[in-house]
Write a protein that binds this DNA or RNA. Structure first.
Lengths: 241, 241
DNA sequence: GCCGGTTTGTTCTCCCGTTCACAAACTCCT
DNA sequence: AGGAGTTTGTGAACGGGAGAACAAACCGGC
């Protein structure tokens, strides 16, 4: 409607596009590391696993950073996307729940390299407060508010069992955290203005199971299941928003 | 998507609905454990964090399992959804890559209780082949094909570093695996007919960062809601226009 | 048997996202 | 300089999902 000729059209980015920007960013970072200077929308789309038209439309929401007849300057585009997402600055993050998953998250190297810094690991279990995980010592959950205030934390990660997740979320919101990444298999209820994204292993597996069952049912199709069959190299859709 | 002629009464269920069925299933399981016999669409929608109209429409794709004026029989509906998803049967699953994340996944208790059984843990690193994780001993990656054949595995989980993920996926597909859950931060290329779902921590965090940046930018707007504001469910969209 | 209250299943409309197709814009070669 | 060949950015068509609203169906009381 109104985003016709606005130069810094950073007001109207669709949610579906926002979800793909990190994918483009990763692909561009790979290209930068490989020494590539420029790339076409076709190449970048291939690396990101999307349609080139969709890629171009997504990028058009950020502005006109390409050159017709040439393509995109890889490093420049990478910077623009990173700035748009907000990962040029460092985001302090707290992780609550240092079980198996919490360990894995704390040790995940992709944090620091992608604009995030784990400033604290919290757990309600006092027996864990001796531990040092990934160079960070585990502190009592009660320290949450002090840590959030000290570091200006806006993003919290919940890696607790399901029963504790809502409590943790409430406390986080109470401390001023406004974005939560939830790994616990439960539905969180939060006030408006707080963003929650969930990562749920069981749900993903069950979605796969549904399609798998469907494949098994419609087994009338001729055998394409041979071991040596690297036929098509097309990408499989997986977006579910 | 391949429009397959429906072999039975179960027609094609929209993808968005399929993605929500596991959420309903979990909510119903909770209700069953709480001893609830029946529930209305409003109650179930609340527990699942969705709109009741959307819930009813979703369920209508499965059939008419409710009773007007009464609601749904909790246990009956739970069974029907489980059957539709395909988690009444047990799905054998292999996990490749037993690092921090692989450990967490292997120890995840939600597998067995939700229709999945980890039949093997594989890792390319020989130094890990002594380990026993979650009661399952880690075996060489080369054993993949034998294990897939023996157990009839259709679902594979990739928890390796990004550089190894495409290789692992290729081998999985070569062995006959047709559904892959990918935790590695990379885009997988697979033949048509193979489903890939990805779980990507960095992407989720970056999406949160984007919205967080937006909130910080638009700090000029007067506070519309106080801190104590128990309201919405789930993912909360922000002030678009 | 019938009436009022309740809740489901479904229809209709609107909006978002995807994809096609093409003009605009740029480079390179002659 | 000009034309041929590329590639971007975007208008427009299309399909699918979300939400409101309502008719159909069921229960209980009398």
């Amino acid at each position: 409607m109104t985003a016709r000729t606005s130069p810094e059209a950073s007001r109207d980015i669709p949610e579906a596009t926002v979800a793909r920007l990190p994918v483009y960013l990763r692909a561009l970072t790979s290209l930068v590391e490989a020494g590539t200077r420029t790339c076409s929308s076709e190449e970048l789309a291939g690396a990101a696993g999307v349609n080139s038209a969709k890629l171009r439309k997504d990028l058009s929401y950020l502005g006109s950073y390409g050159t017709r007849g040439v393509g995109y300057d890889v490093d420049y585009l990478r910077y623009q996307i990173a700035r748009e997402i907000g990962v040029e600055q460092d985001w302090p993050v707290v992780i609550v729940g240092i079980g198996n998953l919490g360990h894995a998250l704390a040790n995940f190297s992709g944090f620091r390299s992608r604009g995030f810094r784990v400033v604290a690991l919290l757990d309600a279990d006092p027996s864990r407060h001796d531990e040092v995980v990934a160079g960070i010592d585990v502190r009592p959950f009660a320290d949450l508010e002090a840590i959030v205030r000290e570091h200006g934390v806006a993003i919290g990660v919940i890696a607790t069992p399901a029963v504790a997740a809502q409590d943790v979320a409430d406390r986080m919101v109470g401390c001023g955290i406004t974005s939560i990444l939830n790994f616990a298999p439960t539905v969180l209820s939060v006030p408006t203005g707080v963003d929650v994204r969930k990562v749920d292993l069981s749900i993903e597996l069950q979605i796969l199971a549904y399609h798998e069952q469907r494949k098994a049912q419609g087994e009338a199709t001729p055998a394409t299941t041979g071991p040596g069959d690297p036929a098509h190299h097309e990408l499989v859709r997986e977006e579910t928003a």
